[in-house]
Write a protein that binds this DNA or RNA. Structure first.
Length: 868
RNA sequence: GGGCCCGUGGUCUAGCCGGUUAUGACAUCGCCUUUACACGGCGGGGGUCAUGAGUUCGAAUCUCAUCGGGCCCA
C-alpha cells in the first residue's frame, strides 16, 4: 500500500463524507441488549448559519456520541430545529417588504415556513461538513404538524392537570414586537435617565417615569420615616391629572432614595406590581399594546412613550411642579430580541404554574457538568415571583388550541385527538356545553419555549408507538440558556412525566473571538466554521474544539490552534506512512489468532505497549468525565513524544535490519499502536481516523469497539528499562549534537555500568558498540549534597520536619551516603539522635573521572561512559 | 446590591480534596537536512503562580481581605 506523502484533508474529508452510510449512526428502538444513550440535542434556531458557537457545542456532542457508540451503547444523537419565533417573522417582513398584518395569516405563516426550510438546508450542510454523526432518522422540526401537535397535546395535558390557567395579570410587554414576553426574555442594560423631583400635593416625590403620572394609583412612604409617617392614610392630588390617590406605608420604600416618597403606577416596574398586589390598588392603564398613551392620559393620549415624557416634563415645569432633575444610572429591562425597553402591561394571558420545588428536586438528581453551573439554575428558581407567561401575540408559532364560546364565554380547549389544530382555521368538532356552535378562535400563539421544552420527551419516544425512554442520558447546552431551556425542560418533564429529563447536563461555554471578546458582527471578529474547513480541515476545527478549553469554560477561537492541529495531523500522517511502509506484507492475523508472543517483544516494544495501555486507560477516564481536552492532549503527547520522537527512532535499526524476530516484534507493536490510535482518534477526527483505519482494518472505524486496557501489558519494569534506553539514546544523541558530530556517526564504544538484558535498540539507536559492565566504573561518585525528600519527611515528622531539614543540611553528604548503604541514617536534631529511613533523602553525586580519555554521561544515576 | 467563575513566563493554558525541579502549546533564540515528517528534530532563555495577611513543618493549591477581569441576576 502506498501512502501519499502529504495528508490532504480537502480530498479525504469529502471522500468519506460522501461515502459514509449514515445509517450506522441510527438509534435502534427495538434493541434492549445494549444500554441506551440518548442525547437531548439542542434544536438550533434555523437562521441559515450554523455558527461557531453551535459548532463547539456540537463537537462536544459528537465526541460523546461517537465514544459511547464505540463503547457499546445504543446511541441516539438526534437533530431538531426550533423553527418558530420572531426573528423569522422579522426576516420575512424584511425580505418581502411587508408587515405581518398586510397579508393573510396563513400566507404569512407559509412564507416563514419556506424561509425556514431553506435555512435548515444550509445548516445541515455545514453539519455534514463538520463530520457529525447525527442520527438523521431522529430529526425533528418544531414547525411540522408531527411535532407541534405534541406541543399542543402537552398544553392539553397540563391544562387537565390544572397547571395551566388564563388570567389578566401584569406581563412584560415589548411594544415593538407587540407581544408579551417571559422574564427569561428580558435583558437588562444600564442607561442614564433623569430622576424628576415633583411637588405632589403636600409631598415631594422623585420619579424616573413622569409619563406614568396618569397611571399613578398611590403614593408610598416608609412607615418608619418620621418625615412622612403622619401622611399615611391621607390622600394627595396627582399633578396635571388631578385624581386623588392614597398615601400608603410600606417597608420596601427606601427613605434614602430620592425624596423618600415614591409614586406607584400600574405599572412602572416589577416593584409596582408587588405593591399593587399587596395593597389591593386599582388598575389604571396608561400605555396600550402598541406603546402609545391611552385615553386616561388625557391630552397626551396617542403619544409615544418618549414623546409623552417630553411633553409632561415640559408641562410640569410650566406649572411649577417640577423643581429638580438629577441624572441617574438605571438598569432598564429590554426585549432580548430587539432591545426595546419593555413595559409592564396588564393583559389577559395564558400562564403555566411554576413549581420551583419540583424543579429543584429534579435538578438535584441531575449530574451537572461542570458542577458549579447548577448554582445558576438554583439562583434562578430561588428568585421566581411570577408564573410563566406562555401566550404570545405573534403568528409564526404553535397555535394555542383554544376557542371561546360566543354565547356563554366558556373556554373550549381542543382534545388531544383533534390535534394538530389551528383554531383560527378550524372549528371545534363539537358544540359548547351551552349548545352553541359559534366560537371565537384564540388568536394568540405559544411561546417557542413551549415547543423546545418538550425535546427530551420527544426524543424519548413520547406519544409514539415506541417504548418511553425517559430519562435521556445527556443534555448538552450553553450556559446562556440555563434559566430558559434547561429550566423549562425540567419543569415540563416533571409535570408531564414525573421524571427528570436527563441523567446529566453538560454545559458548554461561549466562543470568543481572537481578541477575547464575544464574537459579534459589529466587532468584526466573527469566524465561520466553513472558513476553517476551507482553509484547514474539519478535523482541525474539531481538534480546536477538543483542546481549546475544558467544557464549561469560554473558549477563544485562535487560528494558531487550528494550525497546530493541522500540524498534528501532518505528524500523525507521517507516522502512519512510515508504519505502513513496514507493514506491507505483515500478517497481523497471526497475532490476532494466537495473541502476541510477549517473549518475542523487545524491551522497547514492551515499553511502548505499556505506555499505550496507560494512554488507553487515561483517555477512557477523561472521556467518561467529558474532559475532551485532557483526552486529546494525552493522545497528542503519546503520539508525538513517545511514539514519534522516541519509539520510532529506537526501532528503525530493527525495522531496516535483517533479524526477522526483532523486525516482527517492532511491526507487531506498530500495528497494534496504529490500530489503537485510529480508534482513540475516531471520536475527535472522524475523517482522519477513518482514513488511517482503512489501511489496516476492515469496515469503518466508527463501528469498531473502543480499545480496552490490556492490564497484562502494563509493566513497570519494562517501562523503567525502556525509559532508560530512551534516555541513553537521547543523551548520546545530545552528546553527538553538542560535539558537532553527525547523529549517525559511530562512537568507538559505549559502556553502561548497570543491568540491561537487551541492548539491541541501544546499538541501533547509537550506531555504536555497547558494552554492559557489571560493577563500578574506575571513577568515583562523590556525594556533593543531600536533598531532603519532603514528601516523606513532612507527613512522618510533622512539626519536626523543619529541624530535620536543617540538620540534614549540616551533615556531611559523604557520611549520609555511607549510612544509606547500611540502611539507616542518623542525624542529630536539637541534640537528639534521630534515625531516618533512606527514602527520606536523595543524595546528589558528582562523577569524578579517573584519568581516562572519556566522557561520562549520568543517566538517572547510572554512569554511561563514552569512548571516542 | 447579591450570586457564580477566573487572575500561572510575551500570549493562551494544565496543575488547584497541600508534599520532587510548576505542565503544555504558540512565540522567541541557538544548533542539525538523520533512509516517516523542516508542517521536522535536539537544545536554550524566559514565571516573586494578581496583591496582602492567615492556617501549616510545608501553599499555585486551603481561609480571609484587597485589586482586576468575565458572566448571571436584582
Amino acid at each position: 500500500m502506498t501512502v501519499p506523502k502529504e495528508y490532504d484533508p480537502h480530498i479525504i474529508e469529502p471522500k468519506w463524507r460522501d461515502s459514509w452510510n449514515m445509517s450506522m449512526y441510527h438509534f435502534d428502538w427495538k434493541d434492549k441488549s445494549r444500554p441506551q444513550f440518548i442525547i437531548d440535542t439542542p434544536p438550533p434556531y434555523p437562521t441559515g448559519n450554523f455558527h461557531i458557537g453551535n459548532s463547539l457545542n456540537w463537537c462536544y456532542i459528537d465526541f460523546v456520541a461517537r465514544y459511547k457508540r464505540m463503547c457499546g451503547y445504543n446511541v441516539m444523537f438526534p437533530q431538531g430545529w426550533d423553527c418558530h419565533g420572531l426573528p423569522t417573522e422579522v426576516k420575512v417582513e424584511e425580505t418581502y417588504g411587508i408587515t405581518k398584518n398586510e397579508v393573510p395569516r396563513e400566507e404569512f405563516r407559509r412564507m416563514c415556513r419556506e424561509l425556514t426550510i431553506g435555512n435548515i438546508e444550509k445548516m445541515r450542510s455545514t453539519m455534514l461538513n463538520l463530520g457529525f454523526s447525527t442520527d438523521w432518522s431522529n430529526e425533528f422540526v418544531t414547525m411540522e404538524p408531527e411535532y407541534y401537535s405534541k406541543t399542543q397535546r402537552s398544553f392539553r395535558k397540563m391544562y387537565d392537570m390544572g397547571r395551566l390557567y388564563q388570567s389578566e395579570h401584569p406581563v412584560n410587554w415589548c411594544p415593538r414586537c407587540e407581544t408579551a414576553i417571559a422574564f427569561a426574555e428580558v435583558e437588562y442594560d444600564s442607561r442614564e435617565t433623569m430622576l424628576n423631583y415633583l411637588h405632589f400635593g403636600d409631598l415631594e416625590i422623585a420619579t424616573t417615569r413622569p409619563e406614568l403620572l396618569a397611571a399613578c394609583v398611590a403614593v408610598a412612604i416608609n412607615p418608619e420615616d418620621e418625615r412622612y409617617c403622619a401622611y399615611v392614610g391621607s390622600t394627595v392630588k396627582v399633578p396635571l391629572f388631578g385624581h386623588e390617590v392614597k398615601v400608603i406605608g410600606d417597608m420596601a420604600v427606601d427613605p434614602g432614595f430620592g425624596t423618600g416618597v415614591v409614586m406607584i403606577c400600574t405599572f412602572g416596574d416589577k416593584q409596582d406590581v408587588r405593591w399593587w398586589v399587596e395593597h389591593g390598588l386599582p388598575l389604571r392603564k396608561a400605555i396600550d399594546k402598541n406603546g402609545l398613551m391611552t385615553e386616561i392620559a388625557g391630552k397626551y393620549a396617542g403619544m409615544t412613550i418618549p414623546d409623552c415624557k417630553r411633553a409632561i416634563v415640559e408641562d410640569l415645569k410650566k406649572e411649577g411642579y417640577l423643581f429638580e432633575q438629577k441624572p441617574l444610572d438605571q438598569n432598564v429591562g429590554m426585549c432580548w430580541r430587539c432591545d426595546t425597553p419593555i413595559e409592564i402591561l396588564s393583559e389577559r394571558q395564558w400562564f403555566i404554574k411554576i413549581d420551583t420545588d419540583e424543579v429543584s428536586k429534579a435538578s438535584n438528581e441531575i449530574k451537572w457538568l461542570p458542577e458549579y453551573m447548577k448554582v445558576r439554575l438554583d439562583n434562578w428558581t430561588g428568585t421566581m415571583e411570577w408564573d410563566w407567561c406562555i401566550s404570545r401575540q405573534r403568528l409564526f408559532a404553535t397555535p394555542i388550541p383554544v376557542w371561546y364560546c360566543k354565547h356563554c364565554g366558556e373556554v373550549m380547549v381542543a382534545k388531544e385527538d383533534w390535534m394538530p389544530v389551528d383554531p383560527t382555521q378550524q372549528e371545534p368538532p363539537q358544540t359548547c356545553k351551552c349548545g352553541s356552535s359559534e366560537f371565537e378562535a384564540e388568536e394568540d400563539v405559544l411561546d417557542t419555549w413551549m415547543d423546545s421544552s418538550i425535546t427530551a420527551l420527544h426524543v424519548s419516544g413520547w406519544l409514539t408507538d415506541h417504548e418511553m425512554r425517559l430519562p435521556t442520558q445527556l443534555r448538552p447546552q450553553g450556559h446562556d440558556i440555563i434559566r430558559t431551556w434547561a429550566f423549562y425542560t425540567i419543569l415540563r418533564s416533571m409535570a408531564i412525566q414525573g421524571k427528570r429529563p436527563w441523567d446529566a447536563i453538560l454545559v458548554n461555554g461561549m466562543v470568543l473571538g481572537q481578541d477575547g471578546h464575544k464574537m459579534s458582527k459589529s466587532l468584526g471578529n466573527v469566524i465561520s466554521p466553513e472558513e476553517v474547513i476551507k482553509d484547514y480541515s474539519a478535523d482541525a476545527f474539531r481538534q480546536w474544539a477538543a483542546i481549546g478549553g475544558s467544557p464549561g469554560s469560554d473558549v477563544m477561537f485562535r487560528w494558531k490552534d487550528v494550525v497546530s492541529a493541522s500540524r498534528f495531523f501532518a505528524k500523525m500522517w507521517s507516522i502512519y506512512r512510515f508504519s505502513m511502509s513496514h507493514l506491507e506484507d505483515y500478517e497481523h492475523d497471526d497475532y490476532k489468532h494466537s495473541g502476541p508472543d510477549i517473549s518475542g517483544l523487545k524491551i522497547v516494544d514492551r515499553w511502548l505497549l505499556s505506555n499505550l495501555n496507560r494512554l488507553i486507560g487515561s483517555v477512557t477516564m477523561s472521556m467518561d468525565n467529558y474532559q475532551f481536552d485532557e483526552a486529546f492532549k494525552a493522545i497528542r503527547g503519546f503520539t508525538w513524544d513517545i511514539l514519534a520522537d522516541n519509539y520510532i527512532e529506537l526501532v528503525k535499526s530493527r525495522l531496516y535490519g535483517e533479524d526477522e524476530a526483532g523486525k516482527n516484534a517492532a511491526r507487531y507493536t506498530l500495528y497494534v499502536t496504529i490500530d489503537a490510535l485510529s480508534r482513540l482518534l475516531a471520536p475527535f477526527a472522524p475523517f482522519f481516523a477513518e482514513e488511517m483505519f482503512s489501511g489496516i482494518g476492515n469496515g469503518s472505524v466508527h463501528v469498531q469497539s473502543w480499545p480496552k486496557v490490556n492490564g497484562s501489558m502494563i509493566d513497570a519494569d519494562a517501562e523503567a528499562s525502556g525509559e532508560f534506553i530512551k534516555d541513553v539514546a537521547g543523551s548520546v544523541r545530545r552528546y553527538k549534537s553538542d560535539h558537532g558530530m553527525a547523529l549517525n556517526a559511530p562512537l568507538e564504544k559505549i559502556e553502561i555500568y548497570g543491568t540491561l538484558d537487551d541492548i539491541t535498540d541501544v546499538l541501533g539507536a547509537t550506531n555504536s558498540p555497547v558494552e554492559i559492565i557489571a560493577g563500578e566504573p574506575d571513577f568515583e561518585h562523590v556525594p556533593v549534597s543531600v536533598k531532603p525528600n519532603m514528601g516523606v519527611i513532612g507527613p512522618k515528622f510533622r512539626g519536626q520536619a523543619k529541624a530535620i531539614i536543617n540538620a540534614l543540611a549540616e551533615e556531611n553528604p559523604k557520611k549520609i551516603a555511607d549510612e544509606i548503604v547500611n540502611g539507616r541514617i542518623t542525624v542529630s536534631v536539637n541534640g537528639d539522635m534521630l534515625e531516618l529511613d533512606p527514602d527520606c533523602v536523595e543524595v546528589e553525586k558528582e562523577v569524578v573521572s579517573a584519568g581516562r580519555a572519556v566522557d561520562v554521561l549520568d543517566i538517572n544515576g547510572i554512569p554511561v561512559v563514552i569512548v571516542r
